[in-house]
Design a protein around this nucleic acid. Structure first.
Lengths: 206, 206, 206, 206
DNA sequence: CATGAATGAGGCTTCATTCAT
DNA sequence: GATGAATGAAGCCTCATTCAT
């Protein structure tokens, strides 16, 4: 009996945790960390403010977790692509396209967690996330260079440029609004082409 | 008899205004708008809080000015490059390189004003700024396409990617710290090469 | 399991709200709106500043409520008198006497809410209040005129004079301090007599 | 020469003082003390903020002077009426009518300086002013009682009521807006009749 | 004496966090 | 464990007053 109860409880707790994370993700992607107040997260999650602190010790912790969850998920997918079949060029194209596609789908967390600086704690976590994304692309590029698919280049800089390029293309005000699926496909294509061309042709530009 | 609107005074006022802008720029580039408190700006500028409001009607106004001043300066320089001699490819390369070079020099405002969302007022201004940068690159790309220097491509997306690429390369945590002048030159080169290659090879990557 | 919206809690909240209103009333009647700082209201009510904003969205709202509560209460009483038995003259006398009596009892809100101008919000509310008091007296006077108890007269002006008369008599520095009950009774009598005589004898004075 | 200069100077200084007082009066009667900022007074007077402090040691002092000047002027006129020919009833009627007439003319200082509470300093002065007005009416009433023109009554209370009555009739929102001259005459008549009737009939009302 | 820039205390309000129920 | 009321530290801004020119 006690065991039963506890199992049910466990589930409820886990569900709550997820709901909180979901609410936080939603809010942060809508208005940035600044606008994501703890109180709003709580009511969005159907809980009380106080309850939040039973799951996360502080706002910073909560959002670091939001960040990490989102990023872990992305990285997992990207890793699969990289480890899958195909040339480095394919990997690169697919990795970028895959990221952009998902970002265009959901609310654009990208903006919030890639761009916006806030408290030191969260900021540190964000830096790490960007680094992680960078690592994925570095791996791809390095492989390509080893294969002689890609020319020699500053891997760090290229990876940074890639992450920056698709981030801006996703969240920035430059690219036109992307409502229709077709438009989205075109954007995905454009961005991934851009990155592939850049890496493939690196050194060419001089 | 009347108050001497002496030249010295004028200068002092102008100097104050500059010191305020300078302090604001410094603070915003260090910790983002969030951390740039009016009080801190004031003391950094060697003035009292109240004095700030003689020069700028509100925090938002002050930082919009900081933003605009920085951007106007950049755009001016980029425009000169675009209107100067050389191929579109040169323009592109030089525009990127020039921006990145200056950004690496001064405090990296780029971060603050390209990325961080804040109050509606400032945000609107920032959107405009990014758009402005985008326009510069769109012009370059369009010219290059007309010249058959560059292949057909999604100009909006490419411009967005360029802005994103160098922004991230500048402020992001992916590229290694760039202290030495030599390292900086390498980064400048890498980033501008990346962008040029991307635009030149666009459509190639498919 | 869920948060107990216990009766005790409800009561405590209601009590807090009352304490806030009470504190606000006290302060405003002592030094006017100007001196009634939110911080002072809070500590007077035994709460923190922040807590006030859980009960009232802003200073203006709080004081509009103070005003309305006080006035509603008064108007209710005055209305009862007007609708009760007796001649218009009796109604007039009793209405004035009743108001003055209660005003002398509690802190003299009259001053604050009838006289002092402040923020637009509160001001609008105050104007309404004064108008409300005016209406009560207009009704009385109109009835009396219809009855031929009172001579024809400018009802608006008379009502205004009545409200002004007892307000000044209550809060002004002209009438001597009224500490003793006997003195108070005398004042009540004097003021109500004054008003009755004025209305009864209107037009006589020419 | 030096003498000449000094005389001219004296005049200019006196003129400045008057202009400041005038500006202050205008502003206070428009928006109350609260809205009458020193800076605004200064520019309205065609001077600088600092200059104000050469004529008046503080905001409170300035407005106390404004108040006193206005009141002295009134009292002088009222005194003349009281000392002139006619019955006490005439004096009373004329005094009230005269005050109301002038108040309706100029900007309604009455409101600001009779009603609105502010800093302790100014407040004290205002209390005195109201007392002064009260004294005038007390004198009239006492004389009338001695003459057996008026019945015995609480002189203090009656005087307070009179001051309150015309103040409210002047500034309150109860009496309809008084734009036309004819309307104004009617109001003057109504208010003075009201007061006379009240004093004449005092004690009648019981 | 005039000027108007500078000061700085103090007001209102927000919100992450705590805690009695 | 959950609730949401309460806390209190900041933040932005205003404005009477001072002071170098």
């Amino acid at each position: 009996m006690a065991y039963q109860r506890s199992e049910k409880m466990e589930q409820r707790l886990a569900a709550n945790r997820e709901r909180i994370l979901g609410a936080a993700r939603k809010l942060v992607s809508k208005g940035g960390l600044r606008e994501a107040r703890m109180g709003t997260v709580a009511s969005e999650a159907g809980l009380s403010t106080g309850a939040l602190y039973r799951y996360f010790p502080s706002k910073a912790d909560l959002f670091v977790d939001v960040l990490n969850a989102a990023v872990d998920h992305e990285i997992l997918i990207l890793d699969k692509i990289v480890e899958g079949p195909g040339s480095a060029r394919d990997h690169l194209r697919n990795a970028v396209a895959s990221f952009v596609r998902r970002a265009l789908r959901g609310p654009n967390l990208a903006y919030a967690f890639i761009a916006e600086p806030t408290e030191a704690d969260v900021d540190a976590a964000r830096m790490l996330c960007r680094k992680q994304f960078g690592e994925v692309f570095k791996r791809i590029i390095r492989t390509g260079i080893a294969n002689h698919e890609f020319p020699e280049q500053d891997v760090d800089a290229s990876a940074a440029c890639i992450v920056g390029a698709f981030t801006e293309a996703l969240v920035g005000p430059i690219a036109p609004s992307t409502r229709g699926t077709k438009t989205q496909d075109r954007l995905i294509d454009a961005v991934s082409s851009f990155c592939v061309a850049a890496v493939v042709g690196a050194g060419t530009g001089a």
